[in-house]
Design a protein around this nucleic acid. Structure first.
Lengths: 192, 192, 192, 192
DNA sequence: TATGAATGAGTGTTCATTCAT
DNA sequence: AATGAATGAACACTCATTCAT
């Protein structure tokens, strides 16, 4: 079936070029199908894009979930969440870029809405992990879990970007450690 | 002079549509000048975009700097940095979006490089504030200042985005407080 | 197929306007296809132009070759070469003009190079005919065949141009006779 | 006066780019005058072009005439005519190209007419030299002088073009000698 | 006499989308 | 289910020309 050839090609092309510079011609070429086949399987470019982003979100949520279980400590859980997101960002940061950033202006409104909803789902997914952690012990500060989830994603995203253009100065270990520290303990050393 | 009409129009149009969907025709129309006038004043779309982004970065750095002085405590300084960035994000989050996010694929490589340098300058600006704070007292954890700066920006950006679609659930005060807390003290309540 | 509609239209438009004044819009209109169809079939204006020129060169070489055979005397061969070139110049002197003249500045360098090569091939074609003639008898002066070929083409071109704006003063027969005489015997009556 | 700065700049730019690719901006820049100054001194691009071509024709005719006098033999005269035209073609073949070739389609009709007239004048100039030579002795074949003039120019032009891309194979002496031979004695060795 | 900012019609090119096969 | 030729609206950019100063 053609869909299975199209999606990976679309991921590639969208990742390398961003939504607007990606062309359906290029995707068809990489997928080794005719251009018409794209439109036979997906109603439009923006819908195809949505499928790609959706697949990205689902992938990271699936992968993360598979690696978490109730017996883990909250610290370990957060570490693993960070690690999986780092994997996504570093191994295929182009995909990550479109998944987390390219949800920008200039996409058809209806698709844009669906993309925002996907992002919301992802944040919910993270927020829920935090919520569950809250119950267990009193480790977690009493902050809004959704905002906390957003700040985790923002921190990962932004530091990864920085890391990607300064790879000679830090190791991946350094980065992971930094993110874990800053997210869990913040900038200040002082006790509250 | 036309430049003064073009820049605000360009900010508007780039903000509303992102780089690729923004059209020079639209910008010319909003600026009430002929299309040729755009090209008389700016060599290309990407260069015009660069000017807009540059102006954005310079604006926030100027505004922030003007509000900081040596007599402030580190906490107060960080608070003000956050506050100014929040201002930019919330008052004109479209500008902020292009300034901090739209540095994406599909822009001419040379301009892209300059944009990345602008971003680096902005991070340096924040990192320097942190560096100076480090000297004063032992309040700051010994982490890399550049990564720390990146994580601050990422947190602000990401939580603002979330806030913007959930404005009914939080006040601006809540948001500011949350960001300050999470950045300075992190998620965990425990002492190291 | 569209190509068959585009080429003749392109010949027309390039001939009437020269390379730079010819517009893809005009060619599309004359070919009765959409502008996009031009670009579906030819990658660019300059490539389309190249195809037209190439077709012109190939046409005259094919036509000339088809009319020559080993049994002809050298004089007869040269006469036929002149005649065929005259046909091209007079019957469709616009095509001839672009084929022989419009290889000018301001065309993309790569295409320009290919056009120059086409011209070289045509001169080679003529030079080879002369070379073969040289062997047969001792009729031909011992001059460089390539320069000789160039001078034949230059003479035909230039006199045709003159003829075209003075058609009332000469017959086509006069012109053909003049060219043959001047090329084979030169201006002077004297014996060497 | 600005005109004196504009004309040489225009020659340069038209020569390097041909009529259509030459831009008034470039000419103004090279002439070190403002763009408006061009239009203050010349009503339009095509008129400016005409002045350049006219200057070219006048120059070669003046130079040639200055070097001819009644005491010279016809052979010597023709040799000098060839030599002066070769000078023009080889020393500044870009000027020559526009003077002799770029009188093509796509120039405003009125200017085109004037350019054709200039070319006619130049051919007349050459034809008159031939006519005068005819009287002296019976050296010249009885052919139409205008066509003969056209064929001389065509031969020079075409062989020069060939020479310019094969300069390693011939000397300027070779070329001059070839042109003189082919023009005066033609391709054939046989006596009439 | 000279300027240069401003113009706007025109150009080559791209690309998502359609549809007959 | 799949194709690929054809489309046409949209786009960035150019440039001869004008005109207020």
């Amino acid at each position: 079936m053609s869909k299975e050839k199209i999606i990976p090609a679309a991921i590639e092309v969208f990742s390398e070029n961003g939504y607007h510079r990606a062309s359906m011609d290029e995707i068809a070429m990489r997928a080794q199908v005719a251009k018409g086949t794209l439109y036979y399987n997906f109603p439009s470019k923006s819908q195809l894009f949505k499928m790609v982003v959706k697949a990205g979100f689902e992938d990271i949520m699936r992968r993360t979930e598979a690696d978490l279980n109730a017996s883990l400590s909250l610290e370990e859980m957060i570490l693993r969440v960070i690690r999986h997101h780092l994997d996504l960002f570093l191994e295929s940061h182009h995909v990550a870029h479109i998944v987390f950033n390219e949800i920008s202006n200039g996409i058809e409104q209806d698709v844009l809405d669906e993309l925002k909803q996907l992002r919301r789902q992802h944040l919910n997914f993270l927020a829920k992990i935090l919520e569950e952690g809250k119950c267990d012990d009193n480790l977690l500060r009493d902050v809004d879990s959704n905002l906390a989830a957003a700040s985790i994603v923002g921190t990962i995203e932004s530091t990864c970007n920085y890391y990607l253009s300064h790879q000679d100065e830090y190791s991946r270990q350094d980065l992971e450690h930094f993110i874990f520290t800053i997210i869990t303990k913040g900038l200040f050393t002082s006790i509250e």
